[in-house]
């Protein structure tokens, strides 16, 4: 399985992860190598096999619908690269 540069650029856009143009070729090669390795799975007959959802069978627990923690904006914002009041700041999204 080989990938072309356009495909890598598309995946990178989906992942919101910048890959410089001059690295697309190398990354395409690396990813193609890994995809070729995982192709082995096609040898396995998985007809009618349920995909695994959990290694240990357990139901999801429910808890009372009550606030258990929160209400501490200073803790939430403590590591923010940029803040204004109790808000995270991002570049302008709407003109």
């Amino acid at each position: 399985m080989s990938l072309d540069k356009a495909t890598v650029a598309r995946i990178a856009r989906l992942a919101r992860l910048e890959v410089p143009d001059d690295q697309l070729e190398t990354v395409a090669g690396e990813l193609g190598h890994i995809l070729a390795f995982v192709e082995q799975l096609n040898e396995v007959n998985t007809q009618g096999v349920a995909p695994m959802t959990a290694v240990v069978e357990m139901g999801l627990r429910l808890r009372a619908d009550k606030v258990t923690e929160g209400g501490d904006p200073e803790k939430v914002l403590a590591n923010a690269p940029e803040r204004a009041g109790d808000y995270f700041v991002v570049p302008k999204v709407v003109e």
Binding site: V27, I34, L41, N42, T46, P51
Partner: peptide, 29 residues
């Protein structure tokens, strides 16, 4: 970066069944 890109690829539309579901079936086995 390599793993994020591979992960994004195997979960992307058109590849999810061929890669991710297949791998989870093998995991069951």
């Amino acid at each position: 970066r390599r793993r994020v890109l591979i992960g994004t690829y195997v979960l992307s539309a058109g590849y999810y069944d061929a890669y991710y579901i297949k791998a989870q079936q093998v995991r069951t086995l």
